[in-house]
Structure formats: structure tokens, C-alpha cells
Design a protein around this nucleic acid. Structure first.
Lengths: 336, 336
DNA sequence: TCATCTTATGCAATCGATTACATCGCTGCA
DNA sequence: TGCAGCGATGTAATCGATTGCATAAGATGA
């Protein structure tokens, strides 16, 4: 930041008005006459003035930024959401800060409302106390949850219907003639894991299929854990003919590992994923999956947070449930 | 941001010292006696004080943040780099803002030094004037380029040796007996495209192979452009037996599309990618590729920027060239 | 014992934009 | 004519932390 940088006072002098008028011309144009406004804008142009955000934020008692808490930034699933957030935030002038929740203690800083005017949380598995709504001595800024959320928490969230999505996947497999269906899950304490597993169980029950707990494999949404699940599938002496994976990354890892071991998808086993990440359409075989609108999740969360910060109340921020969709491709085929 | 939030004055009163002492105890502990420091820290604890960054930044004439300009945030290639940046930045206390360069005019704002104390640029294809070093009336903050860079520009950068990397790929294919080698390129005006194509040409020449311009296909690093390249490959009546793709995403798109059309990799054509993104090891077939240390690129860029901002001069910021490595997997096989 | 130097602390100005309040000039109505 | 009301603008206080300068207390040396 450069000293001798044009200040609002320089603009005021150039325009022959007071700093108050310059400030008003820029942030509340209705309060100045059309003529002065034009003069001021010309002076701004001439001096190359840009507002000093630190000064503005100090006076306005705000920080001028929002923070996005991301679990594992390196996971491409989140980059599309981030992209949606930044594009929805850009016109507002708020800065978008990102913080990787794996970076330990630093996140606590971000939760304080003197660090950010708002928060978008993509990771509901933070240490117990961090996100608790019930600690009034901690001054949290407005929070919007996206993708993940806390059970029994009334704060606004932007999510999908994971139970329904899982149901779509199972219905499809059953339609293809599969009766022996397994499930690769995410990490145990994750809401997405829980709801997708629940949806899987319900759909299996609906179709009168017996539930085989030994066919529910634990994973962590990653490629590597999908590969690990494949190895466990290979060790079974009584194998399912189809696997529903709780993330596309796990589905890809699963298929890739099977391929290395000489097992073919969908010939030897059908696979359905969840997320519809970019690679899925190009995978070999192209991945049948449940699509969720990732960019729109980000946009919606950002828009919701903006209206919360404007103080437009919680009313318009009822849980947004965005639609999911079955994308039929080649990784799941008719049993036979 | 809450009014009646503890200010430095509250801490001062609680500790029975002046605000100056509190400030010093926190930011320059050496200037304060051990006893008072302890008292102040206790008072900080008791009041729950957190510094107001707007006030600090205003007084210190800084913004407290750095901006990362990313071309297409939704591209997973960049998320690993971002991850490296945030982890290297976390201890410094600087905020990390991200801006997607596709978001048009807003980027210009970020380039002004009253918006950020430093800049990491991952996209060298911005409009001509935006990054030009030679416009002194624009007050740029310190800049570090990463991955991409401007030709004939002496500013610090963190890059890899793309010519050498491309050479590794071609050498490997030649070693496997391939004589007819094509190349899928990135967008035409991109430095990575240019240097990787140059490396390809040089390596082909080194091995005495004739250069076939009709085997150099244009792409844009994306999955979709890889698929498009596959379609063009299929239309050739005189096909290369191996393709070196300038990004893993294009390699995956290429292989996926061929697979849909019944062409097998590596049986019918060998493919080598570039980047070693996470999916590559799990792709079908597992992708032979040139690895670049993406996380470390981010970390190095961040560290370099930090020392630049500390005013430690350009000296320690000579172009950092990080190493690349050939990862042999299954997508490239012996010809025959 | 006094002058000098060092260390620890306080006082108060400062960073730049915003905004409550005061002022001024004008219009319109009684 | 006089006064209320309104629109446009200026004056100056304010946001909270930092830091140059002043000062006081203690250490050192002659």
C-alpha cells in the first residue's frame, strides 16, 4: 500500500467540494445533485482514486469479507462450489477468503466476527465447539452451511436431498436386474455418509432386498478409499453384482483398482457414483452417477449469505434443497 | 462486526496500562517488560479481545491480504496449488483472497495495491495492459507468477521446465518404439502450450523423427478438448501411434472418447499426459504422465511473495524452477 | 553524589472514509 | 411577508490500533 496515494481529500479538492460530498457521490448518489455528482466522478477519474477499504471498513464496523471454510481444498469437488461462490459474490464487493479446515487452529480466528462479515461452511465435521450456535459469548457472523450441515440446527443451509439421490441410484440398479447391491460409504461421522447410506437402506427395503451389512464398506470419499474398497470387494467370497459409491471419486478409484486386477466394469460388476464431477463423463467406462448442481450450490449459498448480511432475516433462508438427477452412462449395465 | 466488542482500550483498562503498552505487548513483545506482558496477556484472555484488522491495516497502511488470480477456479489442477498457497500463508496472518480471472472487470480492482499487499498470478493470459510492469502510474503490489508467466519479464516466478518435461514424455515414447508421435496442445497463446510444444519438437528432432504439423492438434487443456482431439485423431487416414497430451485432463478426455468409439489405449494408441493430477493413477488405463509438484509450487510462490512483501528484495526470488518427473504407468506401451 | 544512558511506559497524533448534525438557500403556502 | 419544509452541502467527530515523541525510573560510571 503506497503512501501518497490519492485520498478522498484529494478528490474533494480537485472537485472543489467537501470530502463528505465525495463520499456521498460514491456511495449514496441520490443524496447529491446531478451536477455535483458528475463533477465528482470526473475528479475521481482524474485523480485515479480508489477507496481505502481499511478506512471504510473501520468506520462502517465491518470487515468487508466473507470466509469459506473448505475441508481439503485439493479436492476438486469443492472447486466448482468455490467458483459459484466467487461469481455470486463478485458484484457485491465483498472479498472472498478461503480457509482450509485442515489447517488446524487458524480456523478459530476466522470464526470471530471481527475477521469476516459472513461465513460459508462446507465442512460440518469441525471440532464440536467451533460451530456451536449456542455459545453467545462467541460473536459469530452470519453462517450459511452448504453441502454438509449439522443435525438439529436451524441455521440456513443449501443442500441436496441425499436420501432421495441414493434412492435414485438403487432404483436404477434394481431396474437393471441387480438384487445383490453393495454400498461404499464416506467417513462414518459425516452427514452425507449417513443420509446416503440411509437412502440406500430404504431403497433396498422398498424393493424387498435383504440388507447385507457386510456389503456396506467404509471409505472417506477419496480416490484411494475407493481403490481400497475394490480390494475388499475382491476378497469377498459372496460378492454383490453392483456397488453404489457415495462419491464419484470413490467410484473412479474403485473401477480403476478393479481394472488393474482384471475385473471389468460393467461386465463383472456395475458401479454408480455420486456428484457427477467433470471427469465422470470421460471416465472409462463413463460413470453412471447422481448429479448435484455444484456451481449452483455455491451461488445459492452466496446469495443467501448476502441477504442474511443485509439483515433480511432468516425468513428467505429456509433450507434450500436443490435437485439431484440420475445420469445414466456406461458403468452400470443390465445384469446377465 | 459487533459494536460493544472488546477494544484495545478495554484490555488496557483491565490490565491497568495504556493502549500503547497493550499494542506493544502484542506486536513487539521485546519492548515490554516481562511482568507487564504477562498482565496484558491475562487481560486479553479475560476480555476475549481480538485485534480489529481494519484499524490495524488502516494505521499500518496495508490491506492485510494477498490475492490469487486463478484462471477457471473450477479446474482441479489449480486447487492443489491453492492448497499449497493457503497452507504456506496461514502462519503469516495474511488473508488469502481468490479471484477468478474469468470474472471480467473485477480483476482490475484487485491489481491495485490498495486492495492487496501482494499478488500471485496463475494466469498469464490476462488482457495486455493488466499485468504490464511498465505502467508506473498504476500502483501494483509485489507480484509472483506461478505456473504461467510472461515472456521477457523479470519479475519473480515459480515454474517448471516445460521443455524438459515434454522431452521426457517423447523420450519415453521413442524408447517404447514409437516413431509416429502426435501432440495435443493447449490454447495457442499460452506459454505452457508454447514451451511444451517446443520441447516436443526438439525431442522429435533429437531422435531424427520428422515433424508432422498435422499431428499437432489444438486444444485448451480441458477434458472436452481432449475428447475433440480424439475425434480428429479418428478422422486421420495416417495416424500417429502415440499422442503426448499437454495436460492430464486432455489425456483423459482423449482416452475416454476413444474408448467410446471402440479404440483401446494403449493397445491401439499410446498416450502420455502432463501434470499428474490425482485421478491419473486411477484412470483406466492408469495414465503415464509428467508429474509436477503442484502443492509445492503453491507453497514456493507464497513463501517467495512473503519475502518480497517483507522487502527482502528480488535477490532471493530468482525464477524458481521446480523439478518434473516421468511417471510410467499403463497408458503408454511398447509398439507392436 | 551527579550526569548520562537505558529501559519501560504513557500521551496524543495519525491512518482515510463515513455520517450525525448544522447550515444555507429556495419553494410554497397561509 | 413570514415561516415551515426540503434538498444540497459542509463541519467535525468517529471507528480502533499503532507509533513518534516525551518522560520517568533505574542502572552505570566518574
Amino acid at each position: 500500500m503506497n503512501r501518497n496515494y490519492p485520498r478522498i481529500r484529494d478528490v474533494a479538492e480537485a472537485a472543489g467540494v467537501s470530502t463528505a460530498t465525495v463520499s456521498r457521490a460514491l456511495s449514496t448518489p441520490d443524496l447529491v445533485s446531478e451536477d455535483t455528482r458528475a463533477i465528482v466522478l470526473k475528479a475521481v477519474e482524474a485523480t485515479g482514486y480508489r477507496v481505502n477499504h481499511a478506512a471504510r471498513n473501520l468506520r462502517r464496523q465491518q470487515t468487508g469479507g466473507i470466509v469459506v471454510l473448505v475441508p481439503n481444498l485439493a479436492n476438486p469437488f469443492f472447486s466448482a462450489i468455490l467458483s459459484g461462490i466467487t461469481s455470486a459474490m463478485a458484484p457485491s464487493g465483498y472479498n472472498v477468503l478461503i480457509a482450509d479446515t485442515r489447517q488446524g487452529e487458524h480456523i478459530r480466528d476466522y470464526l470471530h466476527n471481527n475477521r469476516a462479515d459472513g461465513l460459508i461452511v462446507l465442512d460440518a465435521n469441525l471440532p464440536e465447539d467451533v460451530l456451536s450456535a449456542g455459545a453467545p459469548e462467541r460473536h459469530h457472523p452470519p453462517i450459511v452451511f452448504a453441502c454438509e450441515w449439522l443435525e438439529n440446527d436451524t441455521r440456513p443451509k443449501v443442500v441436496i436431498d441425499n436420501v432421495y439421490g441414493a434412492g435414485l441410484a438403487i432404483d436404477h440398479l434394481v431396474e437393471l436386474g441387480h438384487q445383490r447391491i453393495g454400498h461404499v460409504m464416506g467417513p462414518p461421522d459425516n452427514v452425507l455418509t449417513i443420509t446416503r447410506a440411509e437412502g440406500t437402506r430404504r431403497a433396498l427395503a422398498k424393493h424387498g432386498l435383504t440388507l447385507r451389512p457386510d456389503w456396506f464398506l467404509e471409505g472417506d470419499f477419496s480416490l484411494a478409499s475407493g481403490a481400497e474398497a475394490a480390494r475388499r470387494w475382491l476378497c469377498m467370497d459372496d460378492r454383490p453384482t453392483a456397488m453404489f459409491c457415495s462419491s464419484d471419486a470413490m467410484a473412479c478409484g474403485f473401477i480403476g483398482e478393479l481394472h488393474h486386477r482384471g475385473v471389468r466394469v460393467p461386465d463383472d460388476v456395475s458401479v454408480v457414483g455420486f456428484d457427477n464431477i467433470d471427469i465422470s463423463a470421460h471416465f472409462v467406462p463413463a460413470l453412471t452417477t447422481i448429479a448435484q448442481p455444484r456451481t449452483r450450490i455455491g451461488e445459492t449459498a452466496a446469495t443467501c449469505l448476502l441477504s442474511l448480511m443485509k439483515g433480511e432475516g432468516e425468513a428467505i433462508c429456509q433450507p434450500h434443497v436443490l435437485e439431484v438427477e440420475l445420469i445414466k452412462r456406461q458403468s452400470a449395465a443390465r445384469l446377465g
